[in-house]
């Protein structure tokens, strides 16, 4: 399973999303969009919006920290 989380350091829901995967010992790639303009644009293109976090699970995009949606894509 491939998991990517687009985050900013000041966003509390980003921390929650990362903690959620940490608590389940599931690895993910954290992309801090504040330091990477190209990644920020990639996130906007994929999600069609400018809010973080954006969680990508095997190509499925979840905007915000939505535990139920995350779990539905991990089944």
């Amino acid at each position: 399973m491939s998991i990517k989380i687009y985050t900013t350091p000041t966003c509390p829901y980003c921390t929650m999303a990362k903690k959620y995967f940490d608590s389940k010992n599931i690895g993910y790639e954290n992309v801090d969009v504040t330091g990477d303009k190209q990644a920020a644009q990639e996130m906007i293109d994929k999600s069609g919006q400018r809010g973080v976090p954006v969680v990508e699970i095997d190509g499925n995009i979840i905007v915000g920290f939505d535990k139920e949606k995350i779990e539905s894509y991990m089944k």
């Binding site: 900013t8 000041t10 966003c11 920020a40 400018r50």
Partner: peptide, 8 residues
């Protein structure tokens, strides 16, 4: 939320 999205 300026804290969350201000960066963009």
């Amino acid at each position: 939320c300026s804290t969350c999205d201000g960066f963009f």
